[in-house]
């Protein structure tokens, strides 16, 4: 550690402003455009305004879940409890609102509170007990699943099979000013998360903790509070997606959250966030979520069989990671 060679040449300002992390975000959105073009070639009409909006709307659910996943992965964690926290929130919202618009807001609040509670417990187990994130969130997923199924007797209770209140359905499927309202909600979330990550002290602390817990602790950052808050947020975002999906899909079903574990992690990773934490941004995740969804839509447009989707998912993730990984010697 003591040769002149340890002092690398000073990087230029431009290269740092357009660092690899930011470039990945740009690549992500470029990939989205390319996929829409490809889709339109394979199936003319794929990339019309309404076609694009539909794809984006489906992306928004992945995007919501992946917002929380981005937060925890930024500090080197992972949230495997997403599927059943999402599912539990959807069930609770449906049961609480029980089809009436008057009860909807209370239902949403309770659902989000439950998401927050699960997330906070995750965070406490990880930050205070020192349980590895994989184990803690895996266990909590089971707990959420068992509670959801047990309490509702396998989703056979009277309240939990009710359709979602019409207000919610309209919100999730309707349009405002020619744009899907759900997309506008997602845009708001994107703006908020971006603001938090880039322009607040909390966001700065998230990156600090993600870079080094030890250094952050020694510099006076309350690492435990940050960790718990992030897992709490992840729970809230999963719950939010649950509520949105229940409104979009017409109710709560068993296993509705299952696809979102894989997709949320994939979106984060495709978006260029480093799995060991400290580097990445939600904007990348947004690109990742849209890439994944567009890809599936393109496949569906070509009438590819079901199993092909899984295979393509896997191949795409690996190829993208191989591209990112090239020239990076760490990890």
């Amino acid at each position: 550690m003591s040769s002149t060679a340890e002092t690398p040449p000073t990087p230029s300002r431009l290269r740092t402003t357009l660092n690899p992390d930011r470039r990945k975000i740009i690549y992500g959105f470029a990939a989205v455009v390319a996929l829409f073009v490809l889709g339109d070639i394979l199936k003319p009409g794929f990339a019309t305004a309404s076609g694009i909006q539909q794809v984006l709307q489906v992306s928004s659910f992945v995007g919501l879940v992946a917002a929380g996943q981005t937060f925890v992965i930024l500090v080197g964690g992972i949230d495997l409890s997403v599927p059943w926290v999402l599912n539990a929130a959807a069930i609770v919202m449906i049961a609480q609102a029980s089809g009436s618009n008057g009860q909807l807001w209370l239902g949403i609040v309770v659902a989000l509170a439950i998401g927050l509670a699960f997330g906070v417990v995750n965070g406490l187990g990880i930050a205070l007990l020192g349980v590895p994130a994989v184990v803690m969130t895996l266990g909590m997923n089971g707990i959420a699943q068992g509670l959801s199924l047990g309490v509702t007797h396998g989703l056979t209770c009277s309240g939990c099979t009710k359709p979602p209140p019409m207000t919610l359905v309209n919100l999730m499927t309707g349009k405002t000013g020619g744009i899907y309202t759900s997309l506008l909600i997602w845009l708001a979330v994107i703006a908020l998360v971006t603001f938090v990550l880039s322009f607040t002290t909390f966001g700065r602390r998230v990156y600090a903790v993600g870079n080094s817990q030890r250094v952050s602790h020694l510099a006076g950052v309350n690492v435990k509070v940050v960790t718990v808050a992030l897992y709490g947020l992840s729970g809230v975002f999963a719950a939010m997606a649950g509520v949105a999906l229940a409104g979009f899909g017409g109710g709560a079903t068993v296993g509705m959250g299952d696809p979102y574990l894989f997709q949320s992690i994939a979106a984060v990773v495709i978006g260029g966030t480093y799995i060991l934490g400290g580097r990445g941004h939600y904007l990348g995740t947004v690109a990742g979520a849209i890439v994944l969804t567009t890809l599936v839509s393109v496949l569906l447009a070509t009438n590819a069989p079901n199993y092909a989707r899984d295979i393509v998912y896997g191949v795409v993730i690996l190829v993208i990671l191989l591209l990112y990984g090239r020239g990076r010697s760490e990890a």
Partner: peptide, 27 residues
């Protein structure tokens, strides 16, 4: 190979191959 030569985190490599194997199983 992907872990050792691709320098990708094991959790991500196997997340990708999980999907591939699942697809092959359904095939």
């Amino acid at each position: 190979l992907l872990v050792a030569f691709g320098r990708i985190q094991p959790i991500l490599v196997t997340l990708g191959t999980l999907s591939i194997f699942q697809g092959l199983a359904l095939w």
